[in-house]
Simulated assay, not measured.
Amino acid sequence: MKKISLVIILAISLVVLGCAGMSDTQKRTLGGGAVGAGTGALIGAMSGEAGWGAAIGAAAGLAGGYLYDQHEKSKEASYNEGYKAGQKSSKKSQ
C-alpha cells in the first residue's frame, strides 16, 4: 500500500510540474485523469485490482475533467456576453 501511495504522489507531482504551456482544457482534463487514477488505484487496491481501479478511475477522471472544463468555458462566455451587453446599454444611456 505504501508503494502505491508513493507512486501516486510522484505521478501527481509530475503532472502538476509538467502542465506549463498547456491550455486550460488540457490542464483540467489531465488533472481529472490523475485524480481519478489515484482514487481508482486506492479503491482498486482494497479489492485486489489496483490496475483496473486506476484505469477505470482515470477514464472517469478524464471525462469529469473535460466536462468541468466545458462548464467553466460556458460560464466565462456567459459572463463576457453579459459584460458586453452592459457596456452597450451604458453607452446608450449617456
Rank of each mutant, 00 (worst) to 15 (best):
G33N: 03
G65P: 03
G82K: 09
Q26H: 12
G44Q: 04
K84H: 11
Y83E: 13
V7Y: 10
K73D: 10
C19Y: 09
A41W: 14
G18R: 03
A41R: 13
I56K: 13
V16R: 05
T25R: 13
S23E: 11
G21D: 08
D69M: 09
R28W: 09
T39I: 14
G86N: 07
D69R: 00
T39Y: 02
S47E: 13
L6E: 15
Q87E: 11
T29L: 04
L14P: 00
S5R: 08
D24M: 11
W52H: 07
A11S: 08
D24G: 01
G40M: 00
T25C: 06
H71C: 10
A63Y: 02
I12S: 14
M1W: 12
T39V: 13
G61T: 02
G40L: 01
S90R: 05
I56E: 08
E76C: 09
K2W: 07
L42Y: 11
L42E: 03
G51D: 11
A45E: 12
A34F: 11
G44A: 00
I9H: 10
Q70V: 15
A60F: 06
G51V: 09
S90V: 01
V16A: 10
G38H: 04
Y83Q: 03
A37V: 07
K88S: 09
Q87D: 07
G57N: 05
M46N: 15
G33L: 01
G51E: 06
G82T: 09
T29M: 06
S23I: 01
S93C: 07
M46H: 08
V7T: 10
K75N: 14
L42I: 09
C19L: 11
G32M: 03
L14Y: 10
S23D: 14
Q94H: 14
I8T: 08
L17Q: 12
D69V: 03
L14T: 15
T29H: 00
S89W: 01
Q87M: 05
V15D: 04
T29N: 04
A45M: 05
G51P: 02
G40D: 06
L6S: 12
K2D: 15
S90W: 14
S47M: 04
Q87H: 03
M46E: 14
L42P: 10
Y83D: 12
D24I: 02
W52G: 15
H71I: 12
G33H: 05
A63W: 03
K88D: 12
K84A: 06
A63C: 04
Q87G: 06
K84G: 02
S47Y: 10
G31W: 07
E49I: 11
G48T: 12
G40S: 00
L17H: 12
A45N: 13
G48I: 10
V15P: 01
L30M: 10
L14K: 01
A55M: 11
L6A: 12
G53V: 01
I56Q: 09
S89C: 05
G33R: 02
K73E: 08
I43L: 15
A54W: 02
R28L: 08
A54L: 05
G48Q: 12
A55N: 02
A55T: 11
G31S: 08
